[in-house]
Structures are given as structure tokens and as C-alpha cells.
Design a protein around this nucleic acid. Sequence first.
DNA 1: CATTTCACCTGGTGGC
DNA 2: TGCCACCAGGTGAAAT
Length: 291
Amino acid sequence: MPELPEVETIARGVDKRVRGDRIVQAWFASHPQPFKTPPARQSKGLAGRVILAVHRTGKHIVFELGAAGGAGDARGRKALKRAEAKAPAEAQWIVHLGMTGRLLVTTPESPVARHTHARLALESGRELRFVDPRRFGRLEFRDLLRGAAFGAPGAEPLTIGAREFATLFRGRRLAIKAALLNQTLLAGVGNIYADESLFQAGIRPRRRANRVSRAELERLRLALREILTHAIRLGGSSVSDYVDADGARGFFQLEHCVYQRTGEPCRRCQTPIRRVVLAGRGTHYCPECQH
DNA sequence: CATTTCACCTGGTGGC
DNA sequence: TGCCACCAGGTGAAAT
């Protein structure tokens, strides 16, 4: 399940591969999911555009796109890389991977995987593909000349300050873990990193958000920042079959303290890790270390 | 409005 | 071996 570190890893990998390339043609499947923008409008909007940059916002991957020039544009990819900083984006393609979504950069001849919902033919001769068995992902196209740029509703956990972080939870009576998962408050935290950061901060997932002290919230903010940063460095957590744009697995799953360690000894105190269901999700914590 | 529940999907697992 | 119930969880709509 891609969360912030996995999405960041994928966005960096895709950026490295396709920045400066041009979308020659785009094909989309015909079923309604996973398209936030109708597929016909997406393929029309993407065709001919240069990819200026690819980056992450929350759990979304955002492709910044230039004007739809013809194939006759003589500028090479290197020149476009240099021009990127100056050229304002005129459109965006926004990819949310949901639970099982993958972005692949392949050759056109490479066999098309089952559940491939989008194929973008690039001028370099390669192909960018979106594969998502469960179709929980979302693909959206935005024309910035006619509408607003994409912005994640929630704050970025890597850069949010202490005061703003504390404000997010003020007056909220829901469980602190449910609040962490709410993307309109914080953008990018999912089930794995919610459980791991609550463990590191020593806070029980079921505690009501407004009953968590200021000092504990600050521990939580720092734990989140540290864990997310560390996970990005390790290429994310590979649970089930997650891989990055290179097909490489991440390594942070080896450092999980509680997530999917039900019954196993706590790394800090040896007490068996407990599992409960909270907000409809498997939730893991140490009854000894978290209060 | 705040909060909770559930539907959306498919693949993998475990029981029989 | 085959069949089926069940689980996984990000998101957004519907219900409370």
C-alpha cells in the first residue's frame, strides 16, 4: 500500500526517467474506474505535451506538463531539463496509486500486464503504463489555463511546524490514529506509518485526539518526520508486491516495530504486539510502551 | 458540522 | 484439487 515514502520513491524514479520527454499519444481503458477525469478527455489533454517534472504531493504523483507542441519541437531533452525551471506548467496529470497501483516505464513491446488502465507513448520510444488490479487508484487531468492547480488538502507531515501540527487535533474527539489517517488534516500518512509513528511516540492509537497532550503531539510530529524521512531513504516499505519504478523493493519493512507484527515481541520491551481494528483498519501497538 | 460505516475492487489465503 | 468465504486498506459517499 503506497503511502508517502513509497509515493515519493516512485515519483523520484519516474521523474528521473521521463522528465523532458514528450507524450506522443495516450490510451486509456474504457471502464469508469479509475478515472476522475473521463478517459477521452485525458487522452486528448495529454497528447503532445512535454513532461516538465514529476513530483509528489501527499499520496499523489503530479506530472507538470508544458504546452501541447507538435513533434517538430527541436529542443532536446537536455535543453528541456534546463528550461524546466522557467517554463510554467500549462496542465497536470495527477496519479493516485490507491492500494495496488503501479507506474511502469517500459518499451512498447513489453507484454501488457493484466489490469493496465493507461498507456502513454513517449517520444523517446518508451511507454509509461498505469497498472492497478483493484482500481482504487485515480487518474485526473487538469488544464491549468482553465482551472486551478492540484493541491493536497492536508498539511505535509515532513515540513509542518509544531504549532500548526497541534492545531490539527484541537477539539477533535476521534481516535488519534483516525485523525492521522485523515488526508484533509495531514496528507500522506497511511496505515503503516500511522502505527509506526504512534509506537515511536508512545501513544495508544485509540486515545482521543483532543486528549493527547501538547508534549505528546510534539513527540508524534517528530516521530512522523523521522520515520518518513528514514523510510524514504530506504526506498519505502515493501509489503505485498510493492516495487518502485525500477522494480526494486524498499527495505523499511525490515524496521517495522509494530505493523504486521501481531504476537511478536516488542523490539523495546518484548511484550507481544497487539492487534485491534480501528477505523476499519488493522491497528498494531505495544500495550507496554504505548499509553 | 463531526464522526462512523460501508462500498468500491481483485488477488491471496485458509478451511473443508 | 476445487470451491468459497473472508481479508487486505485508501478514499469518498452515505448514514448517523
